[in-house]
Amino acid sequence: TLLSAQRSHDAAPLCSKPVTELSLRSLANMGFTDIQAEQIYDSVSKARGGSTAKHVLSTLTALFSMGLNPSSVLKLLEKCPELYTVKEPQLQQRIDNLRKLGLVEGSLQRTVSHHPQILTVPVKTIKNVVVFLRENCLFTTHQITDILRDSPATLQENLDQLEYKFQYVYFRMGIKQTEMLKTRLFRFTLDEVRCRHTFLERRGLYQTPDKKGQTAVINPKLDSVLNIDLDTFLSNVAKASAEEYDVFQRLMAREWQEQEHYGKIEADS
């Protein structure tokens, strides 16, 4: 489209005329140093050969269109070489979609640099997750943007798993959306969350609130359960020994594995 052509033009001023052939020179023209250009050239040739090489330049152009400098682009590709194989129109569509979801300048770049895999996720998948977060978990648009920014890996999680994690924290732990956001809940795996929670619960230090939201003990804040290292969690919150938690983790892992196994057998029959 005219618009995206325009944008790539702005972002990569050194690339004055459209190039299609990948060469060290064309890379240098985009602003890469000789060494960087060689690195890219090498990885592309090692990747899938011919077909990749053809669209790599336009892919790079799309990455530049986010306003990243050459070394950031290179880092991104090193972190996530799959991006070489994504074609420009898709990439551009995905970037536009993230912008639409509220990842404006600054946060877009940070999110992508931190978790470039987000650009390998099809727009449709992201839309599904967003609808899910809005409709099943009742997050606001603003909160969803925060989730994308703080925990982009959420977009690649299995929706059933995500739902389970949300319901676990919402119903079992009695945590509201705002607090989930504050703690960046979605950065933690389900097992991390429920292991620490179950441990506290069995020690009598955490209770599921009743219908009126009341508990007989004062539950620790989600933040002080998840956002601290294990030693601090054990000494300040759980008041337990590392040995106890170590055994507990192994017991839980076995228990969950057996439940899963059992669940599968049930589903099959």
Binding site: F199, A240, L251
Partner: peptide, 12 residues
């Protein structure tokens, strides 16, 4: 001692 005993009682 109770929290520690409690967690053990409720575990395998």
């Amino acid at each position: 001692l109770w929290p520690s005993v409690r967690a053990a009682l409720l575990s395998e």
